[in-house]
Amino acid sequence: MRKKLMGVLWGLVPILLALLFTMVVLVIVGASPLEAYRNILLGAFESPEKMADVVAACVPLILCGVGMCVTFTAGQWNVGVEGQIILGAIFATWVARNLLWPQVPVLTLMVLAGILGGALWGAVAGLLKVYGKVHEIFGGLGLNYLAQGLAIWLIFNPWKPADGATMSGTDPFPGPAWMPHFRHLRVAPLAVVLTLVAVVIAYFLLQGTRWGLELKAMGKNFRSAFTLGVPSTSRLLIAFSTCGGLAGLAGAIRCSARYGRMIPDIAGGQGYLGLLVALLAGYRPQWVPLIALFFAAVGVGSPRLELNMQLDSSLGGVLRTSVVLAVMLVNGWRMLRARQVRRAVEEAA
């Protein structure tokens, strides 16, 4: 009991440190920290509309975060998630523009196309890693630039709106390709359900299957896992495409439920935020939704800082990232202390 309580208390330390750090940053610009925190909280939770926005903002974060739990478990830094979201959105947009069917088949196909597009792009990242022998961080970044270029080219050429191409994207999708919202709220129940299903599946894949165990072995020690007979190459490719598929689903959801069209910035940094979520969750899918909720709330609440306090909304980003950094530092510090205590005990004995 006491141990559990201590665990919870230690869990709070990084959050306090991050709040303290953000406070210092606010004091530097001469703003009231409490007022800023109050604005973020209100901005996220003051009305049902805002809360619905928070839930909607959770969706891509959870999908990408869960996906990266899979690749991180295999010991891979899948930085290409941003591009995988874009490819998912591109595939889904193709369906929305070309298949003028009723809602149910169109949305089903858009979701499947999104998963396919993301999975393919994820597989390319995996292939580059396995056969290109370059750190996946650079392969992923290169693919992100390429996906971004492809999206812009599509929007400016074949998918150009009749009144001229701009950075604000394509024409709105035909009605059936919009994922229906819950009443007047900007959240699509279908997206939420798909996301929760993804969390459950990822949890069981990683915890309860041989595949998950093999991924873990690869993540801990790639060479030993290979020597012991884990078919590493195919496992790695599947891990990359699983993550890509989830990110692609996020892309399909963003263009169908949020924007109702394809825009150049369809990924909007969700891939990088998802990476932070996965890091903070310690690569365990069951923790992803809670952390994503925190990230989403800060993200939805921060723009209010601009309206009410004339502060840049990137303060929310400072808060989110400093929590992740504080967790790493506090964990490292606790491990260091434990080592020192152990050594002192050994020396005394």
Binding site: V318, T321, M328, W333
Partner: peptide, 24 residues
């Protein structure tokens, strides 16, 4: 000193610094 993963710390700092630069 703390034996945390270099790449992880570096990545988080990348994002933290960008946000700080934007805000300040």
């Amino acid at each position: 000193t703390l034996r945390q993963e270099q790449v992880a710390v570096g990545f988080v700092l990348t994002m933290l610094c960008i946000e700080l630069a934007d805000f300040l």
